[in-house]
Write a protein that binds this DNA or RNA. Structure first.
Length: 566
RNA sequence: UGUCCGAUGGUGUAACUGGCAACACAUCUGAUUCUGGAUCAGAAGAGUCUAGGUUCGAAACCUAGUCGGACAACCA
């Protein structure tokens, strides 16, 4: 009998396969090293939600197991990298809520060491300088099913290799003239083992090392060693590096250096968007969007500008889990995460985006009534504010129907509704223009219902939002929708590409009327426009032009109902 | 035709490592509500890619197959 087993009440929180590996590592008493991870971006683009998954995994894992996580820039290709990207990456990681302390590293910090590693391989007869052109190397590599051909330079002497490699470093050769290659196995079934290039000549200044170097290590010859130098215990990376692992293991063994454990996981895919840096760059360059931080972009800066919070993104990363199978996450899950967070945090305000004038016939011309509105029903501490009510108001055009269907709760002729936090009103008349469009709705109000409830406790079916015409502030509102019309834009039909599925209606700019209270809004501040959605003040806001981005709409069971009836 | 990896409701992730499949999102009901929001209660939905095998017992282990993904930059 094993009564020593866990008590049944002790619910085991399921952990992902990476944490299972790490817990086994910790349980193994031979490992006295604390868990150490790293997030290793290349500074050649902006971070996106897929990177956020990796950041949360790496920093989150370190936190969970009382370890550390480094930020390391894998900057081995000066032709593609830039400080602009370094800065944005730092900002984004910090904004997500992670701290790498003073452990900000660069692969370029290790160039000298990596050069020494190369020398060591040459001395062991495991690397050689090759004069073949890029095309020739490519041709000689063979195919996955056909072995490659050995380079004619493969058997140069150690001394020749040493001196040639030295001369590569001192700049005697032009770009592409020579490379350093590992001497492994041109017949390996793993393409990465077919004498991979270790160093290439690039006469381009590096954003950190300037013109100190004209030879740069390939990613494969820098990444694993950088992890090793930093004594990373667990090198967590995406699936495509699984086939590189035998190569990294080979380097570690030949170099006789510390061996991190590499663990691969499946990258994030989200519906209705693309996640490749190349494609995002292309959309920026071709002006399909307004920059990397366009609120429609899945970039971290785009999501930030859209109104997403770090908490919501961290929570998203948590609940999507980590595994090795390919996945396609429904954006609805991301949206759920931000709604959940903003519902608790966002200040409520009344805003009318598609105004229809309402005139309260029995309301005194110059009277202004003031009532209390709750700032956030989910958080009493956020208090109350005053709202101003007058004879002429705006309501949402969709909140009035002359000839409504049965389930319509809102305003229609003869029907009474509540104006939120104000009065009950009843529609008595409708004024139309020559085209037959409604331009004014006339109502009467019940003065006894001030604040939104009646002494006789009579029920009204609907409550709608409104603003006082003479008090409301006009603002610009940017309505964003998904960037693509297809669930998986990468799944392209013949003759098309991902851009064929761009949503031409992904941005609509309109004017809205909002409570005067909104004037205090600061850039980035988030609001719930009652009954409409979540919005945040955009950085393009100026002194006399307030601009709001729609983060997303509120859930809406009415439009669902409407569609059903059609 | 090679090597490596993967396959569980519509989606994603679990299943205490062999004891008759759970959680979240999405969907649908109903209650409640001064947001058709939120909240609460409930429902439906997979028998775990297929076929064999091991076992008292398989989503899990073994074998074969099927399907999907990755790999042939002097990119990362």
């Amino acid at each position: 009998m094993d009564n020593l087993k866990n008590t049944p009440e002790e619910k085991k929180v399921p952990i992902n396969f990476i944490h299972q590996i790490i817990e086994a590592y910790i349980d193994n008493k031979k490992n006295n090293r604390a868990v150490h991870t790293r997030f290793p971006p290349e500074p050649n683009g902006y971070l996106h939600i897929g990177h956020a998954k990796s950041i949360c995994l790496n920093f989150g894992t370190a936190q969970k197991y009382n370890g550390l996580c480094n930020l390391r820039f894998d900057d081995t290709n000066p032709a593609k990298e830039d400080v602009e990207y370094v800065d944005s990456i730092r900002e984004d990681v910090k904004w997500l809520g992670f701290d790498w302390g003073n452990r900000e590293y660069y692969a370029s910090d290790y160039f000298e060491q990596i050069y020494e590693y190369a020398i060591k391989l040459i001395n062991k007869g495991k690397a050689y300088v090759c004069d073949l052109t890029a095309e020739e190397i490519s041709e000689n590599r063979g195919t996955p099913t056909k072995a490659g051909i050995e380079s004619p330079y493969r058997d140069r002497s150690v001394d020749d290799n040493l001196s040639l490699f030295q001369r590569m470093r001192t700049g005697e050769f032009k770009d592409g003239e020579k490379v350093l290659r590992a001497k492994i196995d041109m017949a390996s079934p793993n393409m990465h083992m077919r004498d991979p290039v270790l160093y290439r000549i690039i006469h381009t200044d590096h954003h950190r090392t300037g013109n100190k170097w004209c030879i740069y290590p390939m990613y494969d010859f820098a990444h694993g060693q950088s992890d090793s130098i930093e004594k990373i215990t667990h090198s967590i990376c995406t699936l495509e590096f699984e086939v590189h692992r035998p190569l990294y293991d080979w380097f570690i063994k030949e170099l006789e250096i510390f061996a991190p454990q590499q663990i691969e996981f499946a990258r994030l895919n989200l519906t209705y968007t693309v996640m490749s840096k190349r494609k995002l760059l292309q959309m920026v360059q071709e002006k399909q969007v307004n920059g990397w931080d366009d609120p429609r972009m899945p970039t971290i800066c785009g999501l930030r500008r859209r109104g997403y919070t770090p908490e919501s993104i961290r929570n998203f990363a948590e609940i999507i889990g980590v595994a090795k199978r390919d996945n396609m996450i429904d954006v609805a899950l991301l949206e759920h995460c931000i709604r959940e967070d903003l519902n608790k945090k966002a200040q409520r305000v009344m805003a009318v985006l598609n105004p229809l004038k309402v005139i309260i016939d029995n309301f005194p011309d110059n009277l202004i009534e003031e009532t209390d509105a709750i700032n956030n029903p989910e958080d009493e501490k956020m208090g109350k504010r005053k709202v101003l009510f007058s004879k002429e108001l705006f309501i949402e055009r969709e909140d009035f129907m002359e000839d409504p269907p049965k389930n319509y709760y809102r305003l229609s002729p003869g029907k009474e509704v509540r104006l939120r936090y104000a009065f009950y009103i009843k529609c008595v008349n409708v004024v139309k223009n020559l085209l037959g469009e409604i331009i004014e709705v006339h109502c009467t109000y019940d003065p006894e219902t001030k604040g939104g409830s009646s002494p006789d406790k009579r029920k009204v079916q609907g409550t709608i939002h409104w603003v006082s015409a003479k008090h409301a502030i006009e603002t610009e509102i940017r309505l964003y929708d998904r960037l693509f019309t297809k669930e998986n834009p990468d799944d392209v039909e013949e003759g098309k590409d991902f851009k064929s599925y761009l949503n031409t209606d992904s941005l609509k700019i309109i004017k809205g009327k909002i409570e005067p209270f909104i004037k205090t809004a600061k850039v980035g501040e988030k609001f719930q426009f009652e009954r409409i959605g979540y919005f945040c003040a955009d950085k393009d806001t100026t002194e006399n032009n307030l601009i709001f981005n729609r983060t997303l709409t509120l859930k809406d069971s009415w439009t669902k109902e409407e569609k059903k009836n059609k």
